[in-house]
Design a protein around this nucleic acid. Structure first.
Length: 113
DNA sequence: GTAATGACCTTGG
DNA sequence: ACCAAGGCCATTA
């Protein structure tokens, strides 16, 4: 089964796609939700593979713990990520999401509710 | 098969 | 409070 990259990736994509509009989450939150709080890097790597996925993944809603647009450079255009987020009523300044705590969407909290 | 890198986070000094 | 290093899993060279 070469089509199966890894279950971890699939899980990450699934959670990322569940992120509602106007909400953002962090890699560590997803990793923790998947049961791998220390494997936060894998989540970021999964986003890197998101381009390979058929279904589009709202990777622009996934930021780091600092609320910083670390992977904006990986998009079609570095500004695309910021534009997409701004379109969702999310304010971004200096490549950093303002009111990050207010827009933070924790899967372990929302999905575990 | 080994080594290095990566859209990160946690812990130690 | 700030700075530094380690760890994690998977992919690529």
């Amino acid at each position: 089964m070469e089509v199966k990259e890894t279950d971890f990736f699939d899980q990450v994509f699934k959670v990322v796609r569940l992120i509602p509009e106007g909400r953002v989450t962090s890699y560590g939150a997803i990793a923790k939700y998947l049961g791998a709080p220390t494997s936060s890097r894998i989540v970021g790597y999964a986003m890197n593979a998101s381009h390979s996925q058929k279904e589009k993944v709202p990777a622009h809603r996934v930021l780091n713990r600092n609320g910083q647009l670390t992977g904006k450079h990986h998009f079609s255009n570095p500004f695309m990520m910021q534009e997409l987020l701004e379109k969702e009523n999310i304010i971004i300044k200096n490549d950093t999401v303002q009111d990050f705590n207010n827009h933070y969407w924790d899967p372990t909290f929302e999905l575990s509710l």
